[in-house]
């Protein structure tokens, strides 16, 4: 047990280190972009004196590494800082956006994960049959189309032609849950199209791989019923690969959300991040990037822990 705990802690430490590296990369990246927030806010007609004054006011005239260290000092105390664009507290600014993004991502995940597992296992069981082939063609098609294309096609048919769903998501603090679901349908379907296909294909591949192993043949030769072979003999060995597939897909979901939010003008974290990058609002970009990276790392960590905890070699050492 101690060994497992040690491995989990090790992974966790590595995750924190990754987060740190990500923060540097983002900071340096935004720093390299031409122009800064003072120019973005004041517009092209501003006099150099005005720009310099605003810079001084925002503290942008200090060297980059000082600002970076300052930012960390704040984060350590739980203070994400204030937005340079509108002086609002970033934590406050993000909370509402984050809850919207999570709502969208979760809706997509809750439907697509179980569906992908079922479709994938069925495709593996009836492999090379008509079901398998048609599912394969459909999912390949879905994977190949970029999200924005899928999104615009969905908008064209379901909001412009049929008028069933809104093409723009209009959500504020007072929107009811049912109304939210209605608003979120098209963005969620766009996201699902991609990850469902990907997950399903990976589940199919890993189950087929597993079903070819000698112990599965042995289970058949012991006269075990088909369902028992799958549930008792294949699944316990499938958790590790499946957990990995799900984690990677969900991580992709969190990233894919950016594009989808922009297309549907959905008031989520992704859109906020894109807006903030274009006004060079470094603290907001940093905060958003940390949240995205943190989610990514947390999901992968979970997958690692699941693989460790379902591996008999680690659970029952010699």
């Amino acid at each position: 047990m101690n060994r497992i705990l040690l491995m989990v802690l090790q992974r966790f430490g590595l995750g924190l280190l990754t987060l740190f590296v990500v923060s540097i990369i983002i900071f340096v990246g935004v720093e390299f972009l031409p122009g800064d927030i003072a120019e973005a806010l004041l517009g092209q007609g501003a006099s150099p004196e005005n720009v310099a004054a605003l810079r001084h006011e925002l503290g942008l005239d200090r060297p980059a590494h000082i600002r970076y260290i300052d930012w960390w000092a704040g984060v350590m105390q739980g203070d994400l800082g204030t937005s340079l664009a509108n002086r609002r507290d970033i934590a406050e600014l993000i909370t509402f956006r984050l809850s919207n993004t999570l709502f969208l991502a979760l809706t997509a995940a809750v439907i697509s994960v179980p569906l992908a597992l079922i479709l994938g296992v069925l495709a593996a069981l009836y492999r090379n049959g008509i079901y398998d082939r048609s599912v394969n063609i459909a999912t390949l098609g879905a994977v190949s189309a970029p999200e924005f294309l899928t999104a615009y096609v969905l908008i064209l048919y379901f909001s412009v032609k049929l008028g069933w769903f809104p093409s723009l998501s209009n959500i504020d603090v007072n929107t009811s849950f049912i109304d939210k679901l209605h608003q979120v349908t098209l963005p969620a379907v766009t996201l699902m199209a991609v990850i469902l296909a990907y997950m399903m294909r990976m589940v199919r591949a890993s189950i087929i791989n597993l079903l070819a192993s000698a112990y599965i043949e042995m289970a058949h030769l012991k006269g075990m019923p088909k369902l028992r072979v799958i549930v008792k003999h294949a699944l316990p060995n499938a958790w590790a690969p499946i957990a990995n597939i799900i984690a990677i897909s969900l991580a992709y979901l969190v990233v894919g959300v950016v594009v989808v939010e922009v297309v549907f003008i959905y008031p989520g974290l992704g859109q906020l991040m894109v807006d903030s990058v274009s006004n060079r609002d470094i603290p907001v970009v940093q905060a958003c990037a940390m949240i995205f990276a943190g989610t990514y790392i947390l999901l992968n960590l979970t997958a690692d822990i699941v693989s460790i905890c379902t591996n008999p070699r680690l659970l029952h050492p010699k």
Partner: peptide, 12 residues
């Protein structure tokens, strides 16, 4: 089977 190591299910 030829390889008992591969033919026993590692999870049980």
């Amino acid at each position: 089977a030829q390889s008992a190591a591969a033919s026993f299910n590692p999870a049980h």
